[in-house]
Nucleic acid binder design. Structure first.
Length: 420
RNA sequence: CGGGGUGUAGUGUAGUGGUAGCACGAGUCCUUUGGGAGGAUUUAUCCCGAGUUCGAAUCUCGGCACCCCGACCA
């Protein structure tokens, strides 16, 4: 049984829709401003999102690692980014002996330095390394619930290529992987590859911006071409040539940045000593790129988009459970046994089920179920036991159907696209 | 970091100087059981510190926390 409780009322210290719903439904807990804990339901959603990203990163040939949160100041001094004037969102701390230490706000320094132990020849390239790791950023203002926090999980992939051509080939594949990820979590249609102000080795970087009122960015998008221009480079005439869009075809909208990809060039490899020997025996700096997605921010954006006045409405791919089994047994033993048995059978079939067997009134259960937003609700009351037909409700559409017990047990993952 | 606002039971709130109240939740008992049900009863160092006052949740000063707008977001 879930230890989390739902709340009837919105927390007084939150305004943003994603935080209000996620807290009311017991998915997350606010520790302090911009710092959130993930509770069982929220963690399941987050892990489902991470799972999808991980699959796509592996498909790209990415190898997963887990770097440290505690960072060596020396590497950051080498890259010139230790100073608070350069990076103003540092969280810094000290060792027992007084030595300085930083909490990671990104991992270019650490990964570049690490890879220098493993990349020595052109034969060692290209390489793609990624992780899901916590980043700490001392934001002056946390906002928008879990969309902009001071501690957050991030998927960061780093590419190590021999030259610009090899890099660009991967960059394009990474873009496609990102598009697959966003479409798998059902925001593909409203997510635009966006030209934004740039990296160090290219005039523009690419962001993936999802149309969303709660977003912090303003973009100008071309619906046909599926491209957009971030407002920050809107007045730069070159960007239209580069992007291949025409200013007059663009629509303005608020959007949330759900991913970004940067061409890092040799900026980090040069200073941190990541060189390889090419075919002619020359020492050459490795050509790098970085590719980020914030799974928690993504979860927040999805909560913003897929919700209604009753609560959350999760896309199937990331819902915490496939089915919400609501038993209306009360003190009726027959109904209870029927629901218990059905639950056991569904779990055995591999269906992930959240079972609400609390002895509370039906209205409260339905309201909670709406709030939690699990795609399908199965209701077991007198009718089910008497008629052997089981009521199933689609959370998104509100559609109600009565199906046989066999059909319920066929709801296992592979059979999910049967429009129930 | 500039500007504005708010801190009162677990949650949401009322209370502008004189006995801290309401709703929900939670505990116990009875009834109830297909869209947050009814009755009885229990549930608070009013964010922290200092000050003004016979008396402070309320006024003053300082601090802290939280929200919103803006700036920032490598």
């Amino acid at each position: 049984m879930l230890f989390t409780k739902t709340r009837r009322e919105a927390p007084s210290d939150e305004q943003s829709k994603n935080a209000v719903l996620l807290i009311r439904a017991g998915y997350i807990h606010k520790e302090i401003a911009g710092v959130y804990s993930y509770l069982p339901l929220g963690l399941r959603v987050l892990n489902n999102i991470i799972g999808i990203i991980r699959e796509e990163m592996n498909t790209l040939g990415g190898q997963e690692v887990f770097l440290t949160t505690l960072q060596d100041p020396n590497k950051w001094k080498t890259s010139g980014r230790w100073d608070d004037d350069v990076i103003d969102i540092w969280f810094k701390t000290k060792l027992k002996n007084g030595g300085p230490l930083g909490l990671a706000n990104t991992h270019e320094e650490a990964i570049t330095s690490l890879m220098s132990e493993h990349i020595a020849s052109y034969k060692d390239l290209p390489r793609y390394v990624y992780q899901f790791q916590n980043k700490f950023r001392n934001e002056t203002r946390a906002k928008s619930g879990i969309m902009r926090t001071r501690e957050f999980i991030m998927k960061d992939l780093y590419s190590f290529s021999a030259d610009k051509a090899q890099h660009e080939e991967f960059y394009e594949r990474a873009t496609q992987a990102y598009e697959r990820i966003f479409s798998r979590v059902d925001i593909g249609e409203r997510t635009y590859r966006t030209f934004a102000s740039g990296g160090s080795f290219s005039k523009y970087s690419h962001e993936f911006q999802t149309l969303c009122d709660a977003g912090e960015d303003t973009i100008f998008f071309d619906k046909e071409k599926k491209l957009a221009i971030n407002k920050e480079v809107y007045n730069d005439e070159d960007v239209y040539k580069t992007a291949g869009v025409h200013k007059e075809n663009l629509n303005e909208a608020r959007a949330a940045e759900v991913g970004n990809i940067f061409n890092l060039g040799t900026k980090f490899s040069e200073v941190l000593g990541l060189h390889y020997t090419n075919e002619r025996g020359e020492q050459v700096p490795v050509y790098m790129g970085s590719y980020g997605i914030g799974p928690a921010r993504l979860m927040g954006v999805i909560a913003e988009i897929f919700s209604d006045d009753k609560g959350l409405v999760w896309p199937e791919a990331i819902a915490p459970f496939d089915v919400h089994l609501v038993s209306l047994a009360g003190n009726n033993e027959r109904i209870r046994e029927y629901a218990d048995l059905l639950y056991e059978e569904m779990v055995t079939k591999g269906i992930s089920v959240l079972y609400d067997d609390r002895n509370v009134r039906a209205g409260e259960k339905f309201t909670d179920s709406d709030l939690l937003g699990i795609p399908r609700r199965i209701i077991i009351g007198k009718d089910a036991v008497d008629t052997e037909m089981i009521e199933i409700v689609n959370r998104a559409t509100g559609e109600t159907m009565r199906i046989t017990r066999e059909a319920v047990l066929a709801l296992a993952r592979d059979d999910k696209k049967n429009n129930l």
